[in-house]
Structure formats: C-alpha cells, structure tokens
Design a binder for these strands. Structure first.
Lengths: 133, 133
DNA sequence: AAGAATACTTTACAGATGTAAAGATTGCAA
DNA sequence: TTGCAATCTTTACATCTGTAAAGTATTCTT
C-alpha cells in the first residue's frame, strides 16, 4: 500500500462524511443528507461528486438510470493524509514535536491527558510484546 | 488573542519558512534563500509575498527604495492553524481521537513513545499544580 | 399518451493559487 | 551623465474550487 497523499478539499470532506457513513448512494440522496447541514444545491453536490470520480476519490456503479457512488478511499486514509499534510508543512515531518505541540497548546482536561497516558502505555507494551515475539 | 484561523497555502509556508528564520528581508533576498530548495523565479516569490501582504500575513517597511518584509503571524500561530484545520476536518474537532490516531498509526519508536509519556506526565502535574494554586 | 417528477448533463463564472514574463524605475559605477 | 544592475510593478494565464442555473432525458402517474 503506497502512501499516496490524499489532500482533500472542504467540499470533498463534506461528501465523504456522508458516503463513509453509508454507501453506495445516489447524488440526490447525498444532497438530501447534506441539506441537514449545508445549503448546497443539487448541482453543487453533483458537480463535486463527479469531480471526485474524475480524481479517483469516488467509484460509481449504474443501476438502471441511476448512478450510485461509493468512496474509493477509507476514512483512515483521508485522516492520515490530513495529518501527513500538517506534519510535513508545519513540523518538518516530525511527528513527536507535533504531538508535543498539541499537548502544550490545547489545554486538554485532566481526564483526556490521563486517557492519553494510558494509551501510550498500552502502545508501548504492545510494541514491546511484538518485538519480543 | 482571538482564534483566527490561519490556513496557509504551500507557497505561503515556503515564504514563512525563511522569514521566520530571519526578518525583515527583501524579496530578492528571500528569493535567493528559497533557491536552495525550490526553483522559483523572482517574480513568483515577489507575487506570492505581495499577496500575503494583502492578506495581512506579512508586514512591510520601506528602506529607501527597498521593501522589507516580516511575518505578521508567528510560527506557532501558523502551526496551530494547521492543526486546527486537521482536527476540525478529519476528527470532528476532537483533539484526543486525533492524537490517538497518531499514536496508533505512526509506528513511533519506543523512545519517542517514552518521551511522550514523560511529557504527558509533566503536563498533568503542571495542570494539577495550577489548579491547586 | 401526456404531464409531472426525478435525475442527469452541460455550461458558467468568480476567486484563489501556482507560476512567471515583460516592462518600468531607480541608484550606482565609470 | 549615461548606461548597467538591481528592484519593483504590471499583466498574464492555467488550474482548482465553490457554487449553481439551465437544459435534457427518463420514468412514473393519471
């Protein structure tokens, strides 16, 4: 799995949000769903989706005269792309300083810090176990 | 200090990289510096910088017929903007899940994990101390 | 079968960004 | 003072993104 860099636009995130939740879906269906938050005209949604197909971000399948869309990348891939983008641009590619920055600048409440501490601990153990194996 | 959202483009990051290091500087000077990495023509650099001035990202001062530029925002502000953007788009605004994702998906080596654990610990203590005060 | 409803396609347009050539100015060296 | 060198200004243009109206095709409904 090569690390293609997925840098999504706002519009693309909006579309993915609904398609990751449930797909395949038709454009009118997606539009209706989006209506709940944004006020996008049908053609806006449709245009965006078709551009995404052209870019390989969505897949389509025909059902009679209906076109159904599904994501061609996972949410994880997109999330990862977004993080990569940030760590590359803003932290010179170094992950730890970025995390450090987040810890220092975001006033996370105690329980969240604690939670993170736990996470790191268990991750460390897991890694060690893996290495030992 | 209000939370303005600074979402910088690639070009803008490139310019800031050199200005944060040392400023004020003239456009030809910045261009020369950038030459080391990217192959930007002078006018590309200058155009980008002037657009940044228009956006309020850079300040200028005249020195005779020279124009000197300096950053109008700090590196921290820019980093923070970048992180905000990611956490908002990709993690629904929730910082902890984002950190969790990073921990889980980036194969940080033991020492870095350890380092982070220390960081969190000290942060927790600092917070507690602050609260107690 | 005709009209209404639904979905799809085409066309558009403005603003942002990357990228830069060409033209105008100004100051210094000969 | 005159021309070259350095710097700035103007203009340009393609691509991407946000946003959507208008036109066309298809399919129910009556």
């Amino acid at each position: 799995m090569q690390k293609k860099k997925f840098e999504l636009t706002d519009g693309e995130w909006t579309i993915f949000q609904v398609l990751w939740e449930n797909s395949p879906r038709s454009a009118p269906d997606v539009q209706e769903e989006i209506q709940k938050n944004k006020n996008w005209a049908y053609s806006t949604v449709k245009t965006t989706m078709d551009r995404m197909v052209a870019k390989g971000l969505l897949k389509t399948q025909r059902l009679r005269n209906l076109i159904l869309y599904s994501p061609a990348i996972t949410r994880k891939q997109a999330q990862s792309g977004e993080i990569m983008r940030t760590v590359k641009r803003a932290f010179n590619g170094a992950m730890t300083p970025m995390m450090q920055f987040m810890l220092d600048n975001n006033n996370l409440p105690q329980e969240q810090l604690k939670q993170l501490e736990e996470l790191i601990k268990s991750r460390r153990n897991k890694d060690r176990a893996a290495k030992r194996k």
